[in-house]
């Protein structure tokens, strides 16, 4: 399925993407002391796509607030090495200095991910079953097993509770196709390949409204 199928959500037009990307690539990160710069970089560069505090407004850009610190470090390194690729994010990561990564990860992981609200309640209801039970027939493990109650995440298992639905659905499809292949143990590729379109859309819809409790 294509992004255009995600009817009820705002999709940024390509123009915005390009402007944001160009804006970012043209940017040379200032300063020398990395730790002090994390806030500056966040407030001048990352904010364009990931929003204030890492809570992006545009649903195809992930919220990065409250992600596990180690997970953020790993993703930024993977974008830089090419283990994970994104036309938009890879050039941004490439422009970072290696010593910027840890402070940025510390900064964003200390922010709080702000949940949204599910639009399609029926889908979210089915998605909840997928999240809590998986699918015994096809061997989809319950997401809660690794991503924990309310999707808060744990160590290498990132927070997914509160994340944008279109982003989640997109990642699941990239895992299934192998376009994203930086997952530990190949876990997510194995799981996404077993899921139906309906399961993917529904679980994504369920995750939107999950709040930490």
């Amino acid at each position: 399925m294509k992004d255009s199928d995600i009817r009820h959500r705002f999709k940024p037009d390509n123009g915005f993407l390009k402007i944001a990307a160009i804006m970012t690539m043209g940017w040379t990160f200032p300063g020398t002391s990395a730790a002090a710069d994390a806030h500056t970089i966040a407030a001048t560069v990352c904010i364009a796509c990931h929003g204030d505090d890492g809570n992006s407004v545009i649903p195809t850009f992930p919220k990065i607030a409250g992600l596990q610190e180690g997970y953020i470090v790993k993703q930024l390194r993977d974008f830089r090495s090419g283990a994970r690729t994104s036309e938009v994010m890879s050039p941004v990561a490439a422009a970072l200095k290696p010593e910027d990564i840890a402070p940025l990860a510390a900064y964003y992981s200390s922010r709080k991910m702000k949940p949204g609200e599910a639009v399609d309640r029926e889908a979210a209801g089915f998605g909840k079953m997928v999240y809590l039970d998986g699918n015994e027939e096809s061997g989809v493990p319950a997401c809660i097993g690794c991503h924990q109650a309310q999707g808060v995440g744990y160590l290498i298992y990132p927070r997914i509770g509160g994340q944008h639905a279109p982003y989640v659905a997109h990642q699941m499809k990239d895992f299934a196709s192998g376009d994203r292949s930086n997952d530990f143990g190949r876990f997510m590729r194995a799981i996404a390949r077993r899921m139906t379109e309906e399961e993917i859309q529904s679980v994504a819809e369920y995750l939107v409204g999950l709040d930490e409790r």
């Binding site: 061997g139 809660i144 690794c146 160590l155």
Partner: peptide
């Protein structure tokens, strides 16, 4: 900690599923 990836199927308390799956 090593059991975490198993919990999605075998459950957090390792009680499995009453369906026997």
């Amino acid at each position: 900690a090593a059991f975490v990836p198993c919990q999605g199927c075998h459950r957090k308390d390792a009680s499995g599923r009453t369906s026997g799956a």
